[in-house]
Each structure stands twice: as structure tokens, then as C-alpha cells.
Write a protein that binds this DNA or RNA. Structure first.
Lengths: 333, 333
DNA sequence: ATCGTTGCTTACAACGTTGTACAAACCAGG
DNA sequence: CCTGGTTTGTACAACGTTGTAAGCAACGAT
């Protein structure tokens, strides 16, 4: 049922290697030989065995994308762009779900299926630069906002600046009790730390005092956590008149909690998020947010990986910064 | 830098095959030999070359999941469950994005990377049973609601019954002008046809007339399409007092359009969706919806594939029906 | 001592492909 | 017709792994 080069060769009356040459577009094959071979290929529905080819060539044409969770909209949207960008380079993408745990991330980094992938785009939550240093086996590009300048290529956006900008926007609306949702004290919370830094910087610039009661932690960044954090904020004495949520799903949860509390957005409380996921364009109200250029991030990551694979395998790690912009909608116009 | 069985063998002072035996857990290896080999493996950080193993064994340990778009929440959530279920079988999942086009779906079905994957779970939009019949090269499980009983294993839910049930629920709320959003006339619209059939059946059972003006088509099933369709419905003379949207993203778009039109949900218009995506639990209002058991769907699909790969490769195609339930929330309580 | 038996290990071939080296056929210029 | 270069095709080995068959001890039973 499944045919090999040898079968095609016999049918076309040439050697195995000649068929291989035709398949690989080698130049010096006479037109009529090529035609005979191609006919045989078509008749037998021959398709090369990639395992064998990979074994021989040492490359697989597959790269992996490892993200914490696929059903978090931000990662799903990112995955889509990575798949598209990789396709332009002729790569297939193996999407891996790490769950954000250090063990699974390490496993992904040390080679999901060994020799099954040429490179890895990893969006780490738990791993530190030290962890990664020991795993330099695989060409790797890191996504996101790990603080440390690790040993691998890196694509990120300027989280501090973005967080400061969006917080400043809330303040510019005349709000004086601007809360933050999503702080984390764990080592995994690198993004949280950076965004918190931007938040406090904006407060300081505006001459507002930092108030601990206005900063709500969130163990994870799902809608439910945002809702819970918002409810909590409403029970503390200082009722906020604006909230900066460290990502959009948190913000959507917060919107929900505000709605349940009978507060109007943005009249009573302005809300802003981070990530610009599709949901936020249709939520009620629509969501003001920091919009990282996800397509650009994906493209840069794939190109960094491509560079590492083709030319300078031992080049020093590069760090690219992707652009973002504020996308202002109803929740904080 | 990268070591092979041979290197380990030399270091441990045994033959290559003995190392292979240790790696594969072969029983008859003396304890001290095994210890020596394992030590050598650890020292060299040996990891098997999967391409070579696959070539030898004829199996890769990778299955593919091909869905139209990764950033559609339903598929993202499904992908998550498939990855989890596959992991229990020791499989890695290669997630492929077809875009819903026939050409890419055919390409996925005929073997994404040939011999790179053992089997395929495909969620087809465009392909018909006839298309698939010609592509029986790869063990395959189809997801979703293609009408035709194709040549491959199939996991689905009873779309007609589910649509009828949710429509009946809207009618049970006392609504008499129940609209539908999401109809499609194209061959890709198999789900749309089934859900429309359930809708009309429920109307008939309740003795309500089918009104063409209450049925709004949607080219795709994104939020924007739902919003556009809802706006259109509001311009026709017959103002609906309930809407059944053929999926949740359409429904979220419809909620948005109703909000913009100043109509209250559910007081003025009740809204129900289909898929039970995470967004719907936090939208304002929260969304009543048909909740297919996605985890079960994923698990059944993986198990069907497992069966086909291990035992009965030539067994007649099976069709499994996964359960669903109505999840009633604020938009249509 | 000899004979199986059992336990452990090994050499060899094979999976399907492509790189290398070379042979054969062809061509042009003397 | 020979020479030297180019084009076209071939044989062979190799990529790293595992299945097969067989080798070699050491053992208890004859």
C-alpha cells in the first residue's frame, strides 16, 4: 500500500538515487527520464518517508511551540500567528501545552520528541534563566517577559512602559484611586512584576500615593481570578474608580464582578486590560487594553529561530522588542 | 555534543544492542550491566534519536489534530482536551490549522508530514465524505457534525436534538418570535443545517410558524458575524423576542449588538448559544448555551484512534455520540 | 563428562532516504 | 579520431535505531 523510492525506481526503470534526485529537484536529470519518474511517482502515489529523510538529513522541518495553556485566548491567538509565520518558512508547528509547570517546561525545552523538532519557541512561566542555561541542546526562542536576560533568543514587548502608559491613561481620565489586579509574588510572576512596576511608576509620575489596598493579587490570570479579585477590592474601604488588570481575561472577570455589584463601567469604575484579545472587542462594555503586536511577535520569533538554524548557531543571544499600542474602547475611553 | 547508542555502549563496555535493551526496558539484562549502562547514559545525557527509532519501528508516537482555526475558543478548548487525552496514551499532538479550506484539509488528511504522524483527528469544515474516501492512507477520526456517514471513525453530538432542546427552552420562556443566527447555504455548513433543522423542529412542535425573516445567515461564526446578523434582524419588521445563535461567539456578538441597540437581555430578547465556551460564563449577561462534553469528545476521539492503530485497522468505521446538556444562565434563564 | 536449558549478550541486517565517488555517455575543439 | 570537460546515471555507505538469530557462559540433570 505504501511505496518507497525503490518501488518507483523499478517501475521507472532507473536507480533509486535518480528517483531521489527527481524528488529533490536535482538539476541534471534528462527531461525524458524525469518525466518517466514523475509518471511512476504519480501512479504509485509515492510520498517520501520523512522519518528516513530526517534521519539522513538531521533536520525534521518541524518546530515546536510550547505555551502554558492553549485555551487562554492570548496564547491561542499567538499560536495561530506562529503557525502562519512558520508555514511561510516551510515548517510545521508542533504545539505543546506545558501547563506552566517547571517540569513540563523543562521537558519541552530539553527536546519534546528528541530529534523530532529542529527548534523551539517557548513561552515560559516557571523556568528561570538558570534552568534554561542547562538545556541549551535545542535552538530556542523565548517569548514573553522573563526578567532575566537568559542564554537564548528572546522576543518581548516593553511591559513596564506599556503598563505605565495605560495606567497614565486611566489617571488622565481624572481617576485618583486606580487599582491593579493581577500581582503575583511567585517566581513565575515575571510579567506581573514588570506590569506592577509600570503601574507604580505611573502613579509616582502623577503624584499619587501607592496604596497597598488597591493592589489585588491573582493566583492565575483567568476570568474567575479577575472576578474574585475585583469583588475583593470592592470590600476594602477604598473604593477604586479605575482598575488596571494585568491581562484581558482578568479584566473581563472584573467587568463581570462590577456588573454584579451594580457599578457602571466606565462611569463609576474605568477598566483597562492587557493583551487585546478578541473577546475584548465585543464585551459589554468593550475593553480598553494594551495591544501587543502579536503577529509581529510571532514573525520575529520564527525568524530568530530560522536565523539560528541556518546561519549562526553560536551567535550571542539576541533580544528583540515588538511594538504595542493602546487600544482605547468603552471601558476606559 | 549529541550522543548515540554507540557512544554509550563504548563507555559502558557493552554492545550497542545491550544499551538499546536497557533503554527499552528489556527484561534479561543483569543488574550490574544495567547499572553500568544507566550510569553511562546519565553521564552522556543520552537521549534516543526518535527519527531513527521511528524509521525502524514504523510508528512515530505523534498524532495530529487538524482544526479550522486555533483562535476560535471552541477549537482551542477542544485542542487542550485532545492534548491532555493523547498524553495519557503517550502521544504527542501536532496541532495543525487548516483554515477550513478544502485544499488544506485535504493536505492534512493525506498526511501532514508523511510518516511523521501515526494518525489524525480532523475537524473538517469543507471536506465531504467523498473527498475523504480517496484519502484512506492515514488512520483518521473525524470530529463534528458532517452529515454524511463517511469512511472514517467519527465523534459527534446530536446536533438536531440539542438545537431543538435549546429552542424549545426559549419557547418555554414564553417567547413567540424566536430568531436563529448562523444559517449557511454552503456545503461547508453541515453544522448549520443540522442546527437549523433542530430549530425548525422545535418551532413546529410548539405550533409556531417558521418565519424566514427570523433566520439570519452568517458567513462565518465569529463575534463580528453575530453582531452583524443581530443588527440585521433588528432592522426587519418582526422584532424577535429570543435568538438562538448557532454558536457562542455568534451569541456574544449578538449580545453586543443588542446592547448597542439599547435592548435588555433577557427581558426584551433572550439569547442562547452553542458550545459552552469559557467566555460565556463571564459575559454580561452570562450566556445560556448547549454544552457539549468537550472532554468526552476529545477522549473518545483519541481512544478511537488508539483502537484503530493497535488492533483492528480494517474494522468498519464507528460513530460515537458524545453527550451534551443545556447550561442555563442569565441570557435565557 | 555430556547434554540440554536458561540467562545474558552480541553481530548483523534492515528500516527509507541522501551524500559521495565514480562510471558511462555525451559534447565540442583540436 | 582523440582529448578533456560536462552531463547524466549508478553503486555504496551512512544516518541511529531495533528485531532476529545465534553465541557463550553457567547451571542442574542425566
Amino acid at each position: 500500500m505504501r511505496h518507497r523510492l525503490k518501488d518507483v525506481a523499478e517501475r521507472a526503470g532507473v536507480s533509486v538515487k535518480t528517483v531521489s534526485n527527481v524528488v529533490n529537484g536535482y538539476q541534471h536529470v534528462r527531461a525524458d527520464t524525469r518525466a518517466r519518474v514523475e509518471e511512476a511517482i504519480a501512479e504509485l502515489h509515492y510520498r517520501p518517508n520523512l522519518s528516513a529523510r530526517n534521519l539522513r538529513k538531521g533536520r525534521t522541518g518541524v518546530i515546536a511551540l510550547a505555551v502554558p495553556e492553549l485555551d487562554i485566548p492570548y496564547f491561542a491567538e499567538l499560536a495561530r500567528h506562529v503557525v502562519d509565520a512558520a508555514a511561510e518558512h516551510g515548517w510545521t508547528v508542533l504545539v505543546d501545552q506545558t501547563g506552566g509547570g517547571p517540569e513540563q517546561e523543562r521537558k519541552a525545552a530539553s527536546g519534546i520528541g528528541d530529534h523530532m523538532i529542529d527548534g523551539l519557541i517557548l513561552s515560559p512561566l516557571a523556568l528561570t534563566a538558570d534552568d534554561l542555561a542547562g538545556l541549551a541542546g535545542l535552538p530556542m526562542v523565548l517569548l514573553g517577559e522573563r526578567v532575566d536576560h537568559g542564554p537564548a533568543d528572546h522576543v518581548m514587548i516593553d511591559n513596564v512602559a506599556a503598563a505605565r502608559e495605560v495606567t497614565a491613561h486611566l489617571i488622565g481620565l481624572g481617576r485618583r484611586r486606580v487599582a491593579a489586579i493581577g500581582s503575583q509574588r511567585t517566581p513565575e510572576g515575571a510579567s506581573a512584576r514588570l506590569r506592577l512596576a509600570g503601574y507604580t511608576a505611573a502613579l509616582a509620575e502623577a503624584g499619587l500615593d501607592y496604596d497597598d489596598r488597591l493592589v489585588a493579587p491573582a493566583p492565575a490570570w483567568h476570568r474567575a481570578d479577575g472576578a474574585a479579585a475585583m469583588r475583593h477590592l470592592l470590600t476594602t474601604g477604598v473604593r477604586p474608580d479605575a482598575v488596571f488588570c494585568f491581562n484581558d481575561t482578568l479584566a473581563l472577570g472584573a467587568l463581570r464582578a462590577l456588573h454584579e455589584a451594580g457599578l457602571r463601567v466606565p462611569e463609576d469604575v474605568a477598566v483597562a486590560g492587557f493583551d487585546d484579545i478578541e473577546d475584548g472587542r465585543f464585551s459589554i462594555p468593550t475593553l480598553s487594553t494594551v495591544a501587543p503586536d502579536k503577529e509581529r511577535i510571532a514573525r520575529l520569533a520564527v525568524e530568530l529561530l530560522a536565523g539560528r538554524l541556518t546561519t549562526d548557531r553560536e551567535a550571542p543571544p539576541r533580544e528583540l522588542v515588538a511594538p504595542y499600542h493602546l487600544s482605547l474602547r468603552e471601558s476606559a475611553p
